[in-house]
Amino acid sequence: MTTHHKTFFATPSLPVMGLGALWPSPGWNAKDGFPEFSFIWRDYRIDRQALGVLQRLAGGDDAATTERLLLLAPHVTGFRLTLAMLMHPRWPLPIWRALQLRNRLIRRGEIKVAYPSDLIARATAWRVHDKGIELDIHAQLLQGDDCPWESITTFYYRGRFAPLFVHGAAEGAAFASPSVDATLPPVAHWNVEGHRRLRWARLTGDANPLHLLDAYAQRTGFAAASAHPQRIAAQCLGHLAQPQKPPQQLDLWLKGPVYYGRAVTLRQAAGDDGDAFALWVDGDERPAMVGVMR
């Protein structure tokens, strides 16, 4: 297994990340698995301007909405650290084969805004299936002596890999999402606006043209360009009914693209294990995003 440690003392550069993605990938070797990478972003901060972007998307800057968004904010603004890992020349599989599948975001304490922090990302577990590989990336936010936030993001590489095996414990969102009744009354209905796409790409570090250019998306078989999943998650968090306490965990299942210019409908169902919600693109039978907020 390859070991590699990298420290960023400034925001990871999109052009440098792009050059790494263009480098020929070494290829998958079951004996080596994924590299033992440890990427650290020193002096990472959740800046107030980025939080303001999320608040505008969510449609509110009240205390309850902001508390929800603080659970999402490190995943949005720190996502480029994970991408820097997946786009590294030593990474065995190319970034364009990676599909973001599930998220688990956990809050363990006070998340401070504009506070000098360390963000750490590691590949911790993977599962080789008969149709692909699931990979878990574990990110941690360190603020002083505290770790108030962490996440597990699960990616999927479609393809035939052998042998079938499991490495590490699966600590992310469950394989199967909860079911939300499509006949429930909607809690919100809106059109997904496609403005400021490039700004969102800079915010997340995800400059995939599938999220930016309609013509490119259509040439690759999609109806149009689709919004970044984090962007849609922020809008969902702004429309959900307010809980009595700030959420401590958010699980997300990303099931399909949410195209710009399309109308969407959000439904919510309270349960013993948290509030489940699902977002449908109008006209689709299957939800594009499912979540549980605990």
Rank of each mutant, 00 (worst) to 15 (best):
T2G: 12
E193L: 13
A207E: 00
W23D: 09
Q248M: 12
M293F: 03
A63W: 04
L119M: 15
I95F: 15
A162Y: 11
P229I: 09
P89Y: 09
P116Y: 12
L142D: 11
L252W: 05
P89K: 14
N191G: 10
P209Y: 09
G194E: 04
H129Q: 15
S226W: 09
W190D: 12
S13M: 04
R294F: 00
L71S: 01
W28S: 08
Q230V: 06
G238H: 07
A276H: 15
K131P: 11
L237N: 03
V128R: 04
R68Q: 07
H4N: 14
G205D: 06
Q249V: 03
D206C: 09
L198P: 01
D275C: 13
Y259C: 12
D61Y: 04
G132W: 01
A182G: 00
T3R: 15
I133F: 03
T77Y: 00
P163L: 14
A276G: 08
D282C: 03
T66C: 05
A278C: 07
Q140N: 05
L57S: 02
H4I: 12
A73K: 01
F37M: 15
Q242D: 11
R286C: 08
T153W: 06
F155H: 12
C147G: 04
Y44F: 15
N191C: 15
Q230I: 00
